[in-house]
């Protein structure tokens, strides 16, 4: 079980709710993923359309936990205000904290991130910071009150997998007891398996599922991929070698030349 701020989760796959072809596909994909946590956001609501009310009733019917984000925030003040609004609307102190510093890569502004995390932790939030693999930033985030980190695999929505294997391995090794959730950049189920085999605790995936030709099937594939990587890690992988080693015993081989 994965312990997230005192909540035990069976599933190590967290799913985003954005960019699905329809609400029905979203609902089916969440079920197929077996995710217990989905991410949500806040946007301007028109009093006429009330699109947000319909979306919220769909999510509530799924019976999953929600992790609100501060997507689109570029400053500490925006992120902190959005977090307070999300806590009231969604009724949870969990907040996936994003402070974006650069628009082409959606790279986090790690300086603003640490400042916002400290403010929110002091206000009683349980902060899930979207960060890079930088060790010093990770240390500052933990010092600010975060009990979990969400390092990026690759830029949001890029589907490139784990861009900096060396840095991610170093992060895992440096903080063996901190829950680390890979957030962003995953494109294929094999990327998810790789992350779990490296010892990461969970993954948050959105675009790779939502934009697949068959999102429901892909959601199920990611559920299996995360499980396979987790079990493989626990099973203790063999050490790779440069040269071949016969897997079939050579003793007793027939002499037939």
């Amino acid at each position: 079980m994965l312990n997230v701020y005192g909540t035990e989760l069976r599933s190590r796959l967290l799913l985003g709710t954005s960019r699905y072809p329809s609400p029905a596909v979203l609902t089916a994909a969440v079920k197929a993923s077996r995710a217990q946590v989905v991410t949500v956001s806040l946007r301007r609501e028109s009093s006429g359309e009330r699109a947000g009310q319909g979306f919220w009733s769909i999510i509530r019917e799924l019976g999953v936990r929600v992790l609100p984000n501060t997507a689109g925030c570029h400053s500490v003040k925006e992120a902190v205000t959005t977090a307070h609004m999300a806590r009231e609307v969604f009724g949870t102190s969990w907040i996936k904290l994003e402070v974006i510093g650069e628009d082409d890569t959606l790279q986090p502004d790690v300086f603003g991130l640490v400042e916002a995390a400290r403010t929110l932790a002091a206000d009683g939030f349980q902060v899930f910071p979207y960060t890079t693999e930088d060790l010093v930033v990770a240390d500052r985030l933990l010092d600010a009150g975060c009990r979990l980190l969400m390092p990026w695999g690759a830029p949001i929505g890029s589907g490139r997998g784990l861009n900096n294997l060396f840095g991610l391995k170093a992060l895992r090794a440096h903080f063996p007891d901190v829950p680390l959730v890979i957030d962003a950049g995953i494109g294929l189920p094999s990327h998810a398996t790789q992350a779990m085999e490296l010892g990461f605790d969970a993954l948050l995936i959105n675009t790779a599922v939502a934009q697949a030709a068959d999102p429901v099937r892909m959601a199920a594939a990611f559920a299996q991929a995360v499980e396979a990587g987790y079990e493989g890690r626990l099973a203790g992988p063999m050490e790779p070698r440069d040269m071949a080693t016969p897997s079939t015993p050579v003793i007793g081989t027939a002499f037939l030349r």
């Binding site: 985003g16 960019r19 806040l42 301007r44 699109a51 997507a71 969604f90």
Partner: peptide
Amino acid sequence: LEILAPMQGG
């Protein structure tokens, strides 16, 4: 005045 409501998010 900003009036926000639940919306899809990643």
